[in-house]
Design a binder for these strands. Structure first.
Lengths: 180, 180
DNA sequence: CACTATTAGTATCGAGTCGAAACTATTGCA
DNA sequence: TGCAATAGTTTCGACTCGATACTAATAGTG
């Protein structure tokens, strides 16, 4: 019980300190989070709705964030031909640079023993899993671990969307992900 | 490297999901964080400046947060006699209830094996330590682990501030904390 | 095929955060 | 005595947040 409070405190504080220094540029923590997500999500998972669900936010808020990200040149809009309502956003070169940049938290992690990192990663995944099942939101897992994924000679194939995947795409996160 | 990005992602996402549901009442995540801090800090560490440093924020922002927390009745102001500039805030009964309430993250942690929790706690403390030394901010540790602390028959004593401490106070966090 | 329900995204509102900078009152120091 | 440092507040503009009301496109049903 007392442990739980301290763990929550630590997780929140780490994010807060990470965000505080992240304010620096012309981006705020939310905009940065959107960029980070876009850098890891596949091409079927880059709409305002998807981002909103991933971040536990709303379409309205995310729509605003995209507006200023487009204006600042971190992201470009791509409208779908099939469904004229749908929009998919893509990182520009600048956007990509920001998404993969170092920050206080990753610097702190850099000189941390590998074994400890694996443990930490596993624990955090577990906690996140418990939280997600609590409010039954999607896991946003990686393609290659999905029940609809098929490994092929030249990458992968998604049985759900009936689309072939390039090798690097099989390591991206997907809105439709379902654990086996 | 890739691990580091995922760890950051997980930590940020946990906070975000935790915060998202925390919006519910008439409190936002920042106000809640202030309340949580106040619930764990000792009487020498409850000023706007202290909170600002703990949260990696600024005095200006925290001042605003306190304004609305006072207005909503979660916190009361106490001016110091010795230094007429200084203010210390205290949780009201309602404030205390909120600070120790359950939330999505603690619920997720509840049915998590004890041993794993200890490991997670230790890892997170380590990462936080690395981050704090990076931007040389204070550790905000617990009194009993401080180099100025002395255990007495009826609680403790702070050699730095020359003040006796009640037993429960030796487990609170302090702005002045220094590791041995 | 038409009509309605659902879905995707946007606009607007009010409260609040954020850093930055300017400001007031008090205390400390020389 | 006088100036510097400190504690806290206020204001500014950009932005987040949930809520709500909105438009346009697609899906489902009769």
């Amino acid at each position: 019980m007392k442990q739980d409070l301290e763990i929550r405190e630590l997780i929140n504080r780490l994010t807060r300190l990470d965000a505080a220094t992240a304010w620096g540029g012309d981006l705020n923590p939310t905009q940065r989070a959107v960029l980070d997500y876009l850098g890891r999500a596949n091409r079927f998972s880059r709409s305002p709705s998807h981002v909103a669900e991933y971040l536990g936010s709303t379409r309205g808020t995310v729509s605003q964030s995209f507006k200023s990200l487009v204006q600042k040149g971190y992201v470009t809009e791509r409208r779908s031909k099939l469904d004229k309502r749908a929009i998919s956003f893509e990182l520009t070169e600048t956007g990509n640079a920001v998404a993969s940049a170092q920050n206080p938290l990753t610097i702190a992690l850099a000189d941390y023993p590998e074994g400890e990192k694996d443990n930490l990663l596993a624990s955090l995944r577990g906690v996140l899993g418990a939280m997600l099942s609590q409010n039954k939101s999607r896991p946003f897992g990686i393609c290659s671990s999905c029940m609809h994924h098929e490994t092929t000679s030249n990458g992968g194939y998604c049985r759900l969307l009936s689309k072939p995947l390039l090798p690097f795409e099989t390591h991206q996160i997907c809105y439709e992900h379902e654990t086996t």
